[in-house]
């Protein structure tokens, strides 16, 4: 394995991000000429200009932010669980978050949600649900010697099943409008992108992506083992609590604005680790960049593959992610045997 220097990787990823943003802006059911980009926020817009400003740009930003958020949270979770197979959607955090979100929608009532407070309230519900799920899985799966993959995944299955039951229960009692909103959370989707949503997630993701790499060194030490990290002077309990809160916040908000988009948090940190190594000081920002690129491309695909109909973005990431996950599982099993 040959590694890239982290800086070179960041530059390449940034260039890819710019290209993916441009692609996402210009390609879709309506092809838009690149010149129209110049009419953004100007007074004399034609139809294409308005499509760009009101539909494409918020959607592209939302995809990039959600991708960055899920990928960096995935990288942190894998460090926290000391296991490269942890992913918010596989271990039940996303499901926990979606239960939290459905609770708010159901008990909050629709009138309240029509106001501007609706989305932040859903995000808080999702955050609390996600945090409860992370804490439960962590308690169940982590021991002195590390995290058992099987326990972690089984706990994920249990939480996902429970979350499914609760969500179904809500769906049973919900009226039509609520039903539509709740079903959105089971299928990751970016089609309700709006500037309002972009603001909500940007307010969380941008600080998160700046704060998380600061824990990089401590997370590296955590990979050696909890007691090893403690002997290196890391306040392990505080670190774990902080990381559980931060990742639940990230995943919760991502779920609140886009539903459960699976596997981004698994695939991206893996690719980045292969390219530049497991040092979290670079892995977290690198994952954020590449996560934004990946989800942008997946979303552009979702909008164009069956055009003019639109696939849910979560379907595309799951189609890419599930085989990837199986390949990783097989490889890990082979490593254990040899």
């Amino acid at each position: 394995m040959h590694r890239l220097p982290p800086r070179a990787f960041m530059v390449v990823a940034l260039v890819l991000l710019v290209l993916a943003v441009l692609l996402g802006l210009l390609v879709g059911p309506v092809q838009i000429a690149p010149v129209k980009l110049l009419t953004l926020w100007s007074a004399d817009q034609d139809m294409d200009g308005r499509v760009l400003e009101l539909i494409r740009l918020p959607r592209v930003l939302l995809a990039a932010l959600v991708g960055a958020c899920l990928a960096s949270c995935g990288a942190v979770m894998q460090g926290l669980f000391r296991n490269p197979l942890a992913d918010p959607s596989l271990i039940g955090v996303s499901s926990g978050a979606s239960v939290g979100a459905s609770c708010v929608i159901f008990f909050g009532g629709f009138g309240f949600l029509g106001s501007g407070l609706g989305l932040p309230a859903i995000a808080i519900g999702a955050f609390l649900g996600g945090m409860a799920a992370t804490a439960v899985v962590y308690r169940l799966a982590t021991s002195v010697t590390g995290t058992s993959v099987s326990t972690m995944l089984l706990a994920g299955i249990a939480i996902t099943a429970l979350a499914g039951a609760v969500t179904s229960l809500f769906s049973f009692f919900a009226d039509n409008e609520m039903l539509r909103r709740i079903s959105l959370w089971q299928m990751g989707n970016l089609d309700s992108a709006s500037w309002h949503r972009v603001m909500v997630i940007a307010a969380v993701v941008i600080p998160l992506v700046l704060v998380l790499p600061r824990e990089g060194r401590a997370l590296n030490a955590m990979l050696l083992g909890e007691s090893e990290a403690r002997h290196l002077g890391i306040g392990v309990e505080q670190l774990k609590r902080r990381l559980i809160v931060l990742t639940a916040l990230g995943v919760g908000v991502a779920v609140a604005v886009s539903g459960v988009v699976a596997f981004v948090g698994l695939i991206v940190p893996h690719l980045v680790r292969l390219l530049i190594g497991p040092d979290h000081r670079y892995l977290i920002p690198g994952s954020a960049l590449l996560g934004a690129v990946l989800l942008l491309l997946a979303d552009t695909g979702a909008r164009t593959l069956m055009s003019p109909a639109e696939l849910p973005t979560g379907v595309i990431t799951a189609l890419l992610g599930a085989p990837f996950f199986v390949a990783l599982l097989l490889r890990q099993r082979r490593d254990l045997v040899s």
Binding site: L223, L224, R273, P278
Partner: peptide, 10 residues
């Protein structure tokens, strides 16, 4: 410690 597990390619 007696044994340390590290599953990441450092």
């Amino acid at each position: 410690p007696q044994s340390s597990r590290l599953d990441f390619p450092f």
